[in-house]
Design a protein around this nucleic acid. Structure first.
Lengths: 185, 185
DNA sequence: GGGTACATGTAATCAGTTACATGATTTA
DNA sequence: TAAATCATGTAACTGATTACATGTACCC
């Protein structure tokens, strides 16, 4: 209880909970596979958070004395409580887009310069999500976040695509053309 | 040239450029008014970046010796070059959503617990953007980012709203219901 | 036997936030 | 003249990244 828990803490705690029993490495893998697109963290963070959670009594740890000295982590009852509390807490933390492309656009970048790469990028991510969403038996929450991801990428593909279109036809450069296209997507 | 420039550096540089001549305080104000919703930074950051940019020769600084010791900043030709380069660079830096609500959803939060606050929050931000977008004579880039912001908030209102709807009618809890509603927005 | 992926860490650094601090103008 | 806001900073901290390091198991 000494150390304050941050979102990455709960991310690790939640993943261990999801996995049942897991080594930090398993957590790292799970993070890379499931949450990476919308909340990634390097393996050093995973290890750091595991230590913190063990110290706080939210994770129980057993370590092999030999060989790879693999650690095995399990969520303790205290950990379960903490996780339940966290899940229930409706407090909204405002998120900032912090999109570099958007910022450049704000500062007057030429859409012809940066637009095409944006479209490519978001189309590619969209394709990945669509592929992932075809996996059967996804838990509801996971499916929902994937749906969100797809809607988001679709929106961005449309946003940049539409900007490009109106940039090449300078006479139709009205903001409303953009708005409608994004909304309509 | 010694210190590496980060996105906040360019944000400050870009704002000074936009303002023509500005004190760090002006930059702080401009940041709060224009870019805050999607890329905010505290005033200490503004001052730190100004120092860095002056040292790098991208900003020129004149300081009053008396009174409020106000600093006046202008973008140097080198600064203009750096800014132009930056604006042109199409490199895409992937953004992570890092949305706490989404993460909780991923870990199985009950939509009834966290959904309503999400809807309220995003609706409120949407209203703010709509209000802002009514300002006349917005530069094209600014208008475009605002349009993006509105599309984003609209999407999130729809996303959580739809989740809430399907959560209360358990028999229609198919992912497709969610997908269609978000997409259709 | 040698390369690759597994698994785990440490140490240094850094960007960014929070808290604290202060004096200068303006306005009621 | 007192309060509010203007304008500028310093210092401490901390969450997180980057770079470095190392030994284990598996597969060809």
């Amino acid at each position: 209880m000494t150390a304050r828990l941050t979102t990455p803490s709960y991310l690790v705690l939640g993943l261990v909970d999801k996995l049942g029993t897991a080594s930090p490495y398993d957590v790292k893998q799970a993070a890379a596979n499931y949450v990476a697109p919308f909340w990634s963290l390097p393996h050093t963070q995973v290890y750091a958070q595991c230590d913190k959670l063990v110290e706080a009594g939210l994770l129980r740890q057993e370590q092999q004395e030999e060989g790879r000295r693999r650690r095995t982590l399990t969520v303790t009852p205290d950990g379960q409580d903490a996780l339940r509390e966290w899940r229930k807490d409706p407090a909204v933390v405002p998120v900032e887009a912090r999109d570099l492309g958007l910022l450049k656009l704000f500062f007057g970048s030429d859409v012809a310069d940066i637009g095409p790469a944006q479209v490519d990028h978001h189309q590619q991510r969209l394709d990945e999500y669509v592929q992932l969403s075809k996996t059967s038996d996804l838990p509801l929450g996971v499916a929902a976040t994937l749906e969100f991801g797809m809607a988001y990428e679709r929106g961005l593909v449309a946003f940049w695509g539409e900007l490009l279109k109106s940039a090449t036809k300078p006479d139709s450069e009205t903001p409303h053309a953009i708005e409608n296209s994004v909304r309509g997507q």
